[in-house]
Each structure stands twice: as C-alpha cells, then as structure tokens.
Write a protein that binds this DNA or RNA. Structure first.
Length: 445
RNA sequence: GUCCCCAUCGUCUAGUGGCCUAGGACAUCGGGUUUUCAUCCCGAAAACACGGGUUCGACUCCCGUUGGGGACGCCA
C-alpha cells in the first residue's frame, strides 16, 4: 500500500507544541514507510485564519526539518468540492435539510447517522466501538452555506487519498462520525491512530497559558531543532530499547505507530535542556559561535569591535557548560560587557567574608606586576600569594572569580583570566574592591 | 449527566504470563575528578492506583472500584 499521511493544522496563531508533535509522528510514519507526508491548511475560519499563521506553520516545520510532499492544500479553496459532497449526500438520502429555527436563519444540511454501531481498529488503542444510539445526526453545512469541519475534513482526506490519519485523541469521538461519512461518500475509511495529549504538571491539557507552549518559544530560547525533535519524538514513543539520543535517520528507521504510548505525557523541561546540551556539545565551535552571536546581537551585547580570536576562545570556554544558546548571555555576559550583574549570594559568600578583601587586594597587586599575564602565570602567582597567607588557594580563587565575573561558577578561573586579559582583570578587581569595600555584614547588600 | 479513553519510580519510558528481588534516561541525594561551576565516573533513594478473579504462576489477561482526561456546537 502506498501510505499517505497528513498534517492538517488550522492557521490561527502560533504553532502549538502538541500540534507539532502530531506533525512529527505523521512525518515519521510516512518517512518510515516510504510514503508521502502531506500538508493541509484548514483555513476556513476566516475570522481567525491569517497568512502570518500559515507562514508560521511553514517556518516551524522547516526549522524542525519536517519536509512535506506535494503542494499544500488550502481548505478554503476546496469549498466547491465540499458542497458537491453535501449535494451528493442529500441526493442519496444520507443527509437532509432542516430548519433548526432559533438562532439560525434558514436551513442547514444534517447528516443522517446510520443508527448502527460503528467500530474501528485504532492502530494505537486497538478496537474502538460506539453504540448507534450514542451517535446522533449532525450538521455538515451551516445555514450560511459553509461546510462544517467534519464534512470538509473527510472530503479533503478522501481527495488527498490519505491512508492513515494520525491525530490527537481528542478526535476519537469524531472518528465514529467520520467513518460513517466516508461510507456514505462511498469511500473506504482510512486507518486511524490516535495520539495521547501532552499535559502540564497538573495533568491538564498543555495550553498556551502554561508557557513555552509554542515551537517559536523554543526557537527563541535558543534550543537546537534536532534536540527538540528528539525530545518530542520520545514523548509518547520509544524504540523499545534504551536508546534516547536518536538521529533523524535512526528515528525514521525505528518508528512504529504501534509502539506509541496510549497515555498522556508531561513535558519535562529539564530533560529537554539536558538533551539540548548533548546536541550542543556535538556542534563545532564555529557553529556554536554563530548561534551565540545571534543571541548576543538580539540582547544588545554584541559589539563590532569584539575580536574574532577572543570571541572563539570565549565560546570554547563556555560551551562545555552551556545547555542552550541563550546561556551565553545568562552566564557569560561578563565576557562582553563591563556592566555585568553580580550574583548576590556569591558576593556575600566570597567577598563578604573576613579577610576576603585583603586577599583580593593582595592578588590584585601581584597580578598587576606580572609581565606575562596568562593562564599559567596567574595560577603560579595566585598560589604563591595563598602560600604566603598560609591559606587555601580557594580563598583567593573565589573572590577573584566573583570580582571578575560576578558569578559563583563558570569556566576554569585561570583560563578565564587569560581570555579576559590583564587590563580588564585589574580594572574589575579594583572596581569590586571599591564597590564592596564597605560590605561588613551580609545584610548590607 | 451521557458516552469514550487512560493508569509502571517526581517526569519520560522498558516490560506483551515465568528472564522482574521491575531495566534505562532526566531530575534528586551521596562520593570521586575539578581549587569553583559544568562535563565525566561511581553509588543511593525512588514505581507496577486499589479490589476481585483466570492461571501452577500475574506489571502483563478478564471484571469492578478509584483517580485522571476527552467528547457531547450551525469551533476546528
């Protein structure tokens, strides 16, 4: 069989993470079976559908590498076919006109359910059945003459020769009606596979109110598309063994609809971050550098005068501990500006201690006297000072780190100092000495 | 309310009657490496919702209970 799947979003806003996962599974299944993956824009809601949203869908799919086959179908252009189908159903008695009165004006077309039980074998859930008495007739054409979702959906899927409908399980109920429609239209119903939903930490459907609900959010936050794809694929499906980091080719090769989970899944952002870090560390320094540059530009930290050599060195130092590209800003801003923030707790703990300022001053003076200011010399020097004070190197290292970076952690201190350069390091220590001089008790911050 | 669906560690999952004293990953905690953070290595704690069956034997099959979700539109 020539397998054809489709992703049928309605372009009414940003692309939701749950929707894109549906797209991913459709795409995977088509690619796995050597079939076609189609796209249909269900843009019949004229009030809410926008060209921007359509673009948003294209962008999101491209970003994640979800390539589709054939020309996308715009449902709004299929009106004639929908009406033709309605006429046909009317003509053969499978539908009838009715004036429902009340709020509506004029007649609607109602589809006559056969009154028999309807069942199907869901690829993921197994056998499904619904009693005929629980399947009432339903409207397929509104009184204003426009087709209702059920009609348009089925007619278009028939038109596109969709063989496997993979969609959210909130459509299970619709499926019984759709199957009746297929049959009335003289078409063999396709296979169905209903995916569980993605829920929030309260077990409720994951909605826009939960934050980071859209593909664009992850893109902005500096996630790597392959990592997000990998994470999402595993949210509801597993290859059956312990593999987790999967390349595009691997997931395509391994994907099976029958292995999709039937229970709802919850996003775990920490695991996503971990996975992103795994992918990030596999990228070349140059690639990371470019992505980080975009972040820095977007956040106003990029300066044309930044030397390429310096910049690449910084990326080298930072990328080991980065999880997402925006970390270059969140924990590396001090490499790019003198106006870097100080972590309160770190200042209190490392500079607020008795004697900390004296030690910092001592190191500062020794650093200032250094001819060659590099990783090696600064380390030798600092350790010497520590010996003279009869103290642990840590009592000097920490204050220097906080003074120079404002942070409790970061790259190895001495390589960081070398990258920053003597002049900047001395200046920063001086400023810290001045600024935190009066720091006597922890409350004074 | 009616109908449908779901149920393994905190989270994502492996498990299709004996291989399970239930495996992996993230997160957590402890230890090692690192003068710090991260990486890395080692280790710990952590789950079959409950009750009945079926069976020589149930996480696995059946029924019920509970809990959760979904659908009941001239929305999609």
């Amino acid at each position: 069989m020539n397998i054809r799947t489709r992703f049928a979003p309605s372009p009414t806003g940003q692309v939701h993470i749950g929707n894109i996962r549906t797209a991913i599974y459709n795409w995977l299944y088509a690619r796995h079976t050597g079939g076609k993956f189609l796209l249909r824009l269900e843009d019949t809601d004229r009030d809410r559908s926008t060209p921007e949203s359509v673009q948003e869908i294209f962008d999101s799919m491209e970003w994640l590498g979800l390539s589709f086959d054939e020309e996308p179908v715009y449902q709004s252009k299929r009106l004639a076919a929908h009406m033709e189908a309605a006429e046909y159903l009317l003509s053969c008695g499978a539908a009838f006109k009715e004036d429902k009165g009340g709020r509506g004006q004029g007649e609607v077309v109602v589809f006559r359910m056969p009154g028999k039980d309807v069942g199907f074998d869901d690829i993921i859930r197994g056998p499904m059945r619904k009693s005929g008495k629980d399947l009432p007739d339903f409207v397929i054409v509104r009184s204003d003459g426009s087709p209702v979702f059920h009609l348009a959906n089925v007619v278009d899927d028939i038109h596109m020769n969709v063989t496997h409908i993979i969609r959210g399980d909130d459509h299970i109920e619709n499926t019984f009606r759709h199957i009746a429609l297929y049959r009335a239209l003289g078409s063999k119903p396709p296979e169905f596979a209903h995916l569980p939903m993605i829920v929030n930490e309260h077990g409720k459907p994951y909605s826009k109110r939960d934050g980071a609900a859209f593909v664009g959010d992850f893109r902005e936050k500096g996630f790597i598309p392959e990592a997000l794809l990998n994470y999402l694929v595993l949210l509801g499906w597993s290859p059956g063994d312990d593999r987790e980091i999967l390349s595009r080719e691997e997931m395509i090769g391994l994907f099976e609809l029958s292995r999709v989970q039937s229970a709802a899944a919850q996003m775990d952002f920490r695991k996503l971050a971990w996975m992103n870090g795994e992918y990030l560390r596999k990228l070349s320094v140059e690639t990371v550098a470019e992505k980080c540059r975009n972040v820095l530009k977007a956040r106003g930290l990029w300066d044309q005068s930044i030397q390429e050599g310096y910049y690449l060195r910084v990326i080298e130092l930072m990328r080991e501990r980065m999880k997402v590209f925006t970390d270059i800003h969140d924990s590396g801003a001090f490499f790019f500006t003198e106006d870097y923030p100080f972590d309160e707790k770190a200042v209190r703990k490392r500079l607020g201690k008795d004697g900390a300022m004296e030690k910092l001053k001592a190191v500062r003076d020794r650093f200032a006297a250094l001819e060659d200011f590099d990783e090696r010399s600064t380390e030798v020097e600092l350790r010497e000072v520590a010996d003279e004070f009869n103290a642990n190197a840590g009592e000097f290292i920490h204050p220097v780190r906080v003074a120079v970076s404002g942070l409790p952690g970061g790259p190895g201190l001495f390589e960081m100092l070398e990258a920053l350069g003597k002049e900047r390091v001395i200046r920063r220590i001086d400023r810290a000495l001045d600024r935190f001089e009066t720091l006597k008790s922890p409350d004074e911050l």
